[in-house]
Simulated scan of single mutants.
Amino acid sequence: MSSAISAQISSHLAIRKEWLDRRREDPLDPALPIVDPHHHLIDRPESGTYLMSDLLEDIGSGHSIVATVYLEWLSMYRAGGPEEMRPVGEIEFANGVAAMSASGGYGKPRLCAGIVGYADLMLGARVAEVLEAMIAVGGGRFRGIRYIASSDPDQAQWGATFVRPQGLLLDKRVREGFAQLAPLGLSFDAWAFHPQLGDVVDLARAFPATPIVMNHVGGPIGLGRYKGKRDEVFADWSTRIRELAACPNVHVKLGGLGMKMFGFDVHEGELPPSSEQLAAAWRPYVETCIAAFGPSRAMFESNFPVDKGSYGYGVFWNACKRLAQGASAAEKADLFHDTASRFYRLGL
């Protein structure tokens, strides 16, 4: 197991089915169409299994999930061939799941209708060959890549031990690789912690023709040296979010708040949190993002199974619907379906 994969696993909360089963909620507004624009599929002994059947079981919680977007997990790589080409195997895997789903034999939701992979931008211009190979095997579903830049001196306190260089998105070689995305019609998923949002702003300004979506509300850290300083972090984060939103090529995903690094303690309760609890805790972050980006550039995301250590899938979508209660019908359509469909070019 690589150190990158190990870090990605250890920073996530354990899924406890018996605990999750103690909280069930009927779906609110069950007919509202939803595109879930951020989930993973996993099959490794050290991290458990979350595959097509598991995702379908969660989707079966009663909400109208019409399609999903698969996000890279440093997984299912090819066992041989050039090192830089091995991540192409993950696109083949996700496209296989998508093809199974598209047969109609597994229900109405179109799983992995969009696919986001990983390619090493440190290859510079040579990464174009990797991207072209991903397009070739993606069945028309490959949409772009995620290149994680999240790094913090205190990240070991939430289990992440793989240290990425600070300023990674400013690296000249990485930018040379990033420049290959737009000519191929591809987008970029950004994941960085809130102190690094300035790097994403700089990247977005340097490449205004490349669509970028910021994962997990821009990562306001709640542990390490930031523990107990939520108001201070919020003030800093919100200023950076508004600066990022001023870049018209940037969107934002509203989710991921079940991860350990955010510092919420809902996973410590005797019962799993209710959708009311989640909505109350998340409201400042979600409302700030929607106010900054507008519903047409914001999309709710499940981040499952990573966030499943904190709450159930159905409860999550109920929390999102509570957060959107004051929105118009058109705004709800954007937040739950249309923005994701447009950004990932799903044609829904």
Results as ranks from 00 to 15, higher is better:
residue 1 M to V: 15
residue 5 I to K: 13
residue 9 I to P: 00
residue 10 S to Y: 08
residue 12 H to I: 13
residue 14 A to L: 04
residue 15 I to V: 14
residue 17 K to C: 03
residue 17 K to I: 13
residue 22 R to P: 00
residue 23 R to V: 07
residue 32 L to D: 03
residue 37 P to H: 04
residue 38 H to M: 05
residue 44 R to G: 14
residue 44 R to M: 12
residue 51 L to C: 03
residue 62 G to L: 05
residue 65 I to T: 08
residue 69 V to I: 11
residue 72 E to K: 01
residue 74 L to N: 09
residue 78 R to I: 12
residue 80 G to Q: 11
residue 81 G to R: 10
residue 86 R to L: 09
residue 89 G to L: 03
residue 89 G to A: 04
residue 97 V to A: 02
residue 98 A to P: 05
residue 105 G to V: 06
residue 105 G to W: 02
residue 106 Y to S: 01
residue 116 V to R: 00
residue 123 L to C: 14
residue 124 G to F: 11
residue 127 V to K: 12
residue 129 E to Y: 10
residue 142 F to Q: 02
residue 146 R to E: 02
residue 148 I to D: 08
residue 150 S to H: 13
residue 152 D to R: 14
residue 161 T to Y: 06
residue 166 Q to R: 05
residue 169 L to V: 05
residue 170 L to K: 09
residue 171 D to H: 03
residue 180 Q to S: 05
residue 185 G to S: 08
residue 185 G to D: 08
residue 186 L to F: 03
residue 193 F to M: 04
residue 193 F to N: 13
residue 197 L to M: 12
residue 197 L to V: 13
residue 198 G to Y: 09
residue 204 A to H: 09
residue 208 P to Y: 10
residue 211 P to M: 14
residue 213 V to M: 11
residue 213 V to D: 05
residue 218 G to V: 12
residue 221 I to M: 12
residue 224 G to E: 13
residue 226 Y to C: 15
residue 227 K to M: 14
residue 229 K to Q: 15
residue 230 R to Y: 12
residue 231 D to A: 15
residue 243 E to R: 14
residue 245 A to P: 01
residue 247 C to D: 08
residue 248 P to S: 15
residue 250 V to F: 00
residue 257 L to I: 10
residue 262 F to I: 08
residue 264 F to P: 01
residue 264 F to R: 11
residue 264 F to L: 06
residue 266 V to E: 13
residue 270 E to C: 08
residue 272 P to C: 03
residue 272 P to Y: 02
residue 275 S to E: 03
residue 276 E to F: 15
residue 278 L to H: 03
residue 281 A to L: 11
residue 283 R to K: 01
residue 284 P to G: 02
residue 285 Y to A: 10
residue 291 A to S: 02
residue 292 A to Q: 09
residue 292 A to G: 14
residue 301 E to K: 11
residue 303 N to R: 06
residue 304 F to I: 07
residue 305 P to R: 04
residue 306 V to F: 06
residue 309 G to P: 09
residue 309 G to R: 09
residue 316 F to E: 12
residue 319 A to F: 11
residue 321 K to N: 00
residue 327 A to K: 15
residue 328 S to K: 15
residue 328 S to D: 15
residue 333 A to I: 07
residue 334 D to N: 14
residue 334 D to C: 13
residue 335 L to C: 06
residue 335 L to D: 06
residue 338 D to W: 04
residue 339 T to S: 13
residue 340 A to R: 10
residue 342 R to V: 06
residue 343 F to V: 11
residue 344 Y to I: 02
residue 347 G to M: 05
